[in-house]
Amino acid sequence: MYKLRGHHLFCLLGYRGMGYSREYVQNMTHIHQTLRRNPKTWIQLVSGPDQLCEKYPNSGDYHCQGTHIYNRDAIILEKLGLKIGQILKWEDIESVIHKHAVPSDIQIVCESCSWRSYGVCEEGIQDVLDNKGLREVK
């Protein structure tokens, strides 16, 4: 079972192998590919730093504890109708995203995210809407 925070549900959809450091990318790729290959993997929704944050580079201000990040988590969980502490399969998270999200949501809920300009998260939501699931990371 993986522990994930709210905004990482959208980050995983848009993940294309880029990240903050080599160690972060390796960790994110491992989790992403596990979920892609086995959508029945259990996820527990947590408040604050999760298993992706564990590998965030220690380079001063700890991004994962920022108030704006907690706010983004809360907004995304509310949008999806999910709650902290819930345990569900990744395929169920994709189903919830399919029901409650559209690509243009990224422009609003992830407005301050530095990765937003790449457009990959919108593509990731569209892939879920098209029942394609997570993309293969090459």
Rank of each mutant, 00 (worst) to 15 (best):
121 C>S: 03
106 I>T: 05
106 I>H: 00
128 V>K: 00
70 Y>E: 06
55 K>A: 09
63 H>M: 10
110 C>V: 00
97 I>R: 05
91 E>I: 11
102 V>L: 08
128 V>T: 03
72 R>C: 12
129 L>F: 00
105 D>Y: 05
105 D>F: 01
68 H>T: 01
117 S>L: 09
93 I>K: 06
84 I>G: 01
62 Y>N: 13
61 D>N: 13
51 Q>R: 02
73 D>L: 04
77 L>W: 05
108 I>L: 10
63 H>R: 14
122 E>Q: 03
118 Y>V: 05
128 V>D: 02
127 D>T: 05
85 G>F: 06
65 Q>F: 15
55 K>G: 03
127 D>R: 15
110 C>P: 01
96 V>N: 10
70 Y>K: 09
51 Q>I: 03
55 K>Q: 13
73 D>H: 04
52 L>G: 05
118 Y>D: 12
118 Y>K: 13
124 G>E: 07
87 I>H: 13
56 Y>N: 03
102 V>I: 12
77 L>G: 02
68 H>A: 09
57 P>N: 04
123 E>D: 11
81 G>V: 11
55 K>F: 06
100 H>R: 15
101 A>T: 02
76 I>G: 01
56 Y>D: 02
60 G>I: 04
98 H>R: 12
71 N>H: 11
51 Q>V: 01
99 K>F: 08
126 Q>H: 00
62 Y>Q: 14
128 V>R: 07
101 A>P: 05
128 V>P: 02
106 I>Y: 03
99 K>Q: 14
82 L>S: 10
97 I>E: 02
94 E>K: 05
120 V>A: 13
109 V>E: 08
51 Q>P: 01
61 D>I: 15
82 L>I: 10
75 I>T: 11
66 G>A: 12
57 P>Q: 01
97 I>P: 06
107 Q>T: 08
60 G>D: 04
107 Q>N: 12
61 D>T: 13
116 R>Y: 06
66 G>D: 11
72 R>K: 10
51 Q>D: 02
118 Y>A: 13
85 G>H: 06
81 G>R: 08
67 T>Q: 14
88 L>I: 13
89 K>S: 15
86 Q>R: 09
82 L>A: 04
92 D>P: 09
109 V>H: 11
124 G>P: 03
57 P>M: 03
109 V>F: 14
85 G>C: 08
54 E>T: 07
90 W>M: 02
103 P>N: 01
107 Q>E: 10
120 V>I: 11
50 D>E: 04
63 H>Q: 09
75 I>R: 12
120 V>Q: 14
55 K>V: 04
54 E>V: 09
92 D>F: 13
116 R>E: 04
78 E>I: 12
127 D>I: 00
122 E>I: 00
86 Q>N: 12
60 G>A: 01
128 V>A: 00
59 S>F: 10
103 P>L: 00
106 I>P: 01
